[in-house]
Design a protein around this nucleic acid. Structure first.
Length: 851
RNA sequence: GCCGGAGUGGCGAAAUUGGUAUACGCACCAGACUCAAAAUCUGGCGAGCUUCACUGCUCAUGUCGGUUCGAGUCCGACCUCCGGCACCA
């Protein structure tokens, strides 16, 4: 230990030692309790940004805390290394995506090591390496076997800038999630994964994890799954054998249906119009809607509702009423059945539509109050139901104008009417979901090839498991035309059919990179397995993940896919549990001022407000950078960058370092001597030490890292105030200082591990902090207990005085001493004391009658 | 529009869940050291009033109201900001 704090020297020294000793390597055979601490793996863009630093600093704090407590900690890292930017670099600059990616990984790995994050580097993985993506393909084949992966022509979301297909999640809001370009629609044959089959399980599973996941993430996921209970109802088409099936959540309003409205893309439309004079008009309209949809750029604004009467009539199965069938632009083909019954009186959209096209508006639900609902029978207060409605009435109520169902509440009617529909065979209760199957095809080079071949004789044939991986060729022509670049590589495309041995062509699509990231944290556990993605027995020891940490931008994509993947792996016997992640933390963004403005935005190259982690490490050290990032704000809050803030962090580390330096001679040479009587100051210091241990141990468990650092600072301040002279201090003072200083150093480790190790060594401990014996201090409640309390005394709720009392004092005694207090006596003199509230150990409040 | 979340000093924030509001840090101010500056150390730091001073009082947790002996915390209404979703029948 040097006299002065030189971060660079200390950090190099300990990074080298950690590396040589392999202390961060997790071992399967270890009797200690496991803890799996996982951070979202980075995309190797080339450079670490402050968001990464924050993410990994949080994870590392937890990993160190658990290690020091004696857990067997798994803390791995890898690279989400497939994806567009590598290919963009190839298109723009002619570099090979693989070289570009490997270079970036090498650089970022160096940055992570300079930050001193305690990863087990022996488990590092990268998605673009054949030994990894082989297993993406293996899983794909398993899904194909189970009918979970399938191919269909579909209208896909197409990003015209990146010239690729996007999933629904990636094109949410009508814009590309990556580049912000408005998304278009295209017809393409695509691979899909039947995530919809797991919709109900994805909702059910939330109950299991709700204690450990942020509410907002679960809410977004449940909105995404979008479960909706209702009924399918068939409307017979007049003078025809056709039926139009609609989905409704409000079957109780069916007597108010004054039209059936079909999506312009409804598959029944051509047949319905076969003999119709309006055929051409309707087709033209449908075309218009379709093309409008394809070029529509601004989905944020609602399209004006437009429709056309087809001239076809349908029959309401409840009322037998004949109503017209319309086509309109506001009915979504993707949801429900692509057809709705239009009930203008009780649906806003139908109301707008009916107003525009003068369709009848018929009220069939009357509002009721809560009290009326409880009455028997329920009275209707419809008033004049024939009066013109100014708005739709969308609440539940009581049925009117609804034949035999009149007088029933909405809830009763919904249950009874769908049962009736089922009985009469024209419908049934049904549940629909908003979630769509996961489109996994990408017309891209830099991804895992879909392991399927096409043979003229045998059609589509899966690649045999023993032939995996289907290796990506070294290079391709990166034209950026939108065709899959693999299609232009004959050595790749041309192959033999695994079934008949004849000539065959490979599928030229690659898989969505979210496939790679859906299961990667299982691969860490068994990264060199050549026979399976991982050994279930090994995975069983480590999973589920105890704590997962990452940005909330992944709330619905990655985090829903990975939950789905886990359920699939459970179904093929690879894991035994339903949910892969017990606790999730979505950390806040790191922001900085944009120029000289008061605008705080996420750091980015384009805004020019980035802060380079390497520069911070060079200027202040990795420890101070990490300490600041963890101290500046609660982990889930936005973190506003501050240069003076990081200076404060260095200042603190320097002060602690100087304190250790000052004491190290005395402490290192002075063995554990039996202390004598402690002075009141030494007792106070010990009290603070044990209170701090208790607070930080509990705060870290809940990832309250900022308050943990504050508590360390408080302990340091008290140690500073203790102000004993090392040369002259008594045995008992030395004991108290040692206890405080060692606790301080150990508890600083999660935040600033390098300097903590250095100081620990300086205090006379060889061999580093991670030993067989857990180093995390344990609070002694007896020592942490206050000897005396300062009890606030209020008069009528206002603080007027304080009295000193022992913690054991009885209520009566406390009350007596409060009433005896000089100031209090002056205040209550001449007033009647109404009552005295005594909260043991907390406060006394004297209520007096004011004059 | 719908659904969430949040409003506390100049700033980031804390408050054992209804019991001393503003811990800890940043910035700032003063003093020490220095020829001087930086660094470092020591002290001060919500607002207003009062006192030579010790002190004391009043007001303050977005606004208004309520519950309570007591409200940053609970309830009601409103304002503002930030996220998410967006014709899902």
């Amino acid at each position: 230990m040097d006299e002065k704090y030189f971060p660079e020297q200390i950090e190099n020294k300990w990074q080298q030692r950690w590396n040589e000793s392999g202390v961060f390597q997790a071992r399967d055979e270890d009797p200690r309790e496991k803890f799996y601490c996982l951070e979202m793996l980075p995309y190797p863009s080339g450079f670490l940004h402050m968001g990464h630093v924050r993410n990994y600093a949080i994870g590392d704090a937890l990993a160190w805390f658990k290690r020091l407590q004696g857990f067997n900690v798994m803390h791995p890292i890898g690279w989400d290394s497939f994806g567009q930017p590598a290919e963009q670099a190839a298109i723009k600059r002619g570099v090979n995506p693989r070289d570009w990616t490997e270079d970036n990984i090498a650089h970022m790995r160096g940055q992570l090591q300079r930050l001193g994050i305690s990863y087990d580097w022996t488990r590092e993985i990268a998605a673009h390496r054949p030994e990894y993506y082989k297993w993406d393909q293996w899983f794909f084949l398993k899904m194909l076997e189970r009918g979970l992966a399938y191919k269909k022509v579909s209208q896909v979301n197409w990003c015209p800038k990146e010239e690729t297909v996007l999933s629904n999640e990636q094109s949410s809001g009508g814009i590309c999630w990556r580049c912000g370009t408005p998304v278009q629609k295209r017809d393409l044959e695509q691979w899909f994964v039947r995530i919809t089959e797991y919709a109900e399980q994805l909702l059910d599973g939330m109950k299991e994890i709700e204690a450990g996941w942020p509410e907002k993430v679960l809410k977004r996921q449940s909105d995404w799954v979008g479960r909706s209970e209702g009924a399918f109802i068939d409307f017979a088409v007049k003078d025809s054998n056709h039926k139009i099936r609609v989905f409704t959540t409000r079957i109780d309003t069916i007597y108010g249906a004054t039209a059936i409205v079909l999506s312009a893309e409804h598959p029944l439309l051509p047949e319905l119009l076969e003999d119709s004079a309006l055929k051409n008009d309707v087709e033209a309209f449908a075309q218009k809607v379709k093309s409008r949809k394809a070029i529509r750029t601004d989905l944020a604004e609602e399209e004006e509702k437009e429709g056309l009467n087809t001239g076809v009539l349908a029959i309401n199965p409840f009322s037998s009423e004949t109503i017209p069938v319309w086509v309109a632009n506001y009915v979504l083909i993707e949801y429900g059945t692509g057809a709705v019954m239009s009930v203008p009186a009780h649906d806003e959209r139908d109301f707008d539509f009916a107003q525009k096209y003068s369709l009848p508006i018929r009220q069939v639900i009357a509002p009721v109050t809560h009290d009326q609902l409880a009455a028997e029978p329920v009275p209707t207060t419809a008033g004049d139901a024939s009066a013109e409605m100014k708005h739709s009435f969308t609440d539940y109520g009581v049925l009117i104008n609804s034949g035999e169902w009149g007088g029933k509440t909405s809830a009763e009617a919904i249950a009874e009417m769908s049962a009736y529909a089922r009985e009469k065979n024209f419908g049934e209760a049904a549940v629909t979901y908003r979630i769509r199957d996961w489109g996994v095809s990408r017309q891209r080079f830099w991804g895992a090839p879909v392991p399927v071949v096409y043979c003229d004789k045998c059609n589509m044939v899966p690649v045999r498991y023993e032939d995996l991986p289907v290796v990506l060729p070294k290079t391709a022509a990166f034209t950026g035309t939108g065709e899959s670049p693999l299609a232009g590589v004959p050595e790749f495309v041309n192959t033999t059919c695994p079934q008949c041995g004849g000539p065959a062509r490979r599928d030229t699509d690659t898989m969505d990179t979210f496939v790679d990231s859906s299961w990667y944290f299982f691969r860490y556990l068994d990264p060199r397995n050549n026979d399976a993605p991982f050994d279930p027995k090994i995975a069983q020891q480590w999973t589920p993940v105890d704590q997962y940490i990452g940005g909330d931008s992944h709330a619905v994509m990655h985090l829903i896919y990975t939950r789905f993947w886990n359920k699939f792996m459970r179904d093929i016997g690879m894991v035994s549990f339903d949910e892969p992640v017990k606790r999730l933390l979505t950390q806040g963004m790191v922001t900085n001022r944009v120029g000289d403005t008061e605008e705080w935005k996420a750091m980015s190259k384009s805004l020019g407000n980035g802060v380079d982690p390497d520069e911070m490490i060079a200027a202040f050290g990795a420890d101070a950078t990490r300490l600041f990032v963890l101290f500046a704000a609660p982990v889930e809050n936005e973190l506003r960058w501050s240069d003076t803030g990081i200076e404060g962090a260095v200042r603190f580390l320097r002060r602690v370092y100087a304190m250790v330096w000052k004491w190290q001679g005395r402490l290192a040479n002075d063995g554990d001597q039996t202390p004598g009587e402690f002075s009141p100051e030494a007792r106070a210091l010990r009290r603070k030490t044990h209170q701090t241990i208790a607070k930080i141990t509990s705060d870290l468990e809940h990832l309250h890292l900022n308050t943990s650092v504050a508590a360390l600072m408080e302990l340091f301040n008290q140690l500073n105030d203790f102000n004993a002279n090392p040369a002259k201090a008594s045995e008992s003072d030395v004991f108290a200082v040692r206890e405080a200083l060692e606790a301080l150093v150990v508890m600083l480790t999660p935040f600033a591990p390098h300097v903590a190790e250095e100081m620990w060594e300086g205090l006379g401990h060889a061999g580093g902090l991670l030993r067989e014996v857990p180093r995390w201090p344990v609070a002694d409640p007896e020592l942490a207990r206050r000897e005396e309390l300062e009890i606030p005394v209020q008069v009528n709720g206002k603080l007027r005085s304080r009295v000193i009392a022992s913690p054991e004092v009885s209520e009566e005694e406390l009350k007596a001493s409060a009433l005896a207090d000089e100031r209090i006596r002056a205040l209550i003199d001449g007033h009647e004391v109404m009552k005295v509230i005594v909260v043991p150990r907390r406060l006394v409040n004297i209520v007096i009658k004011s004059a």
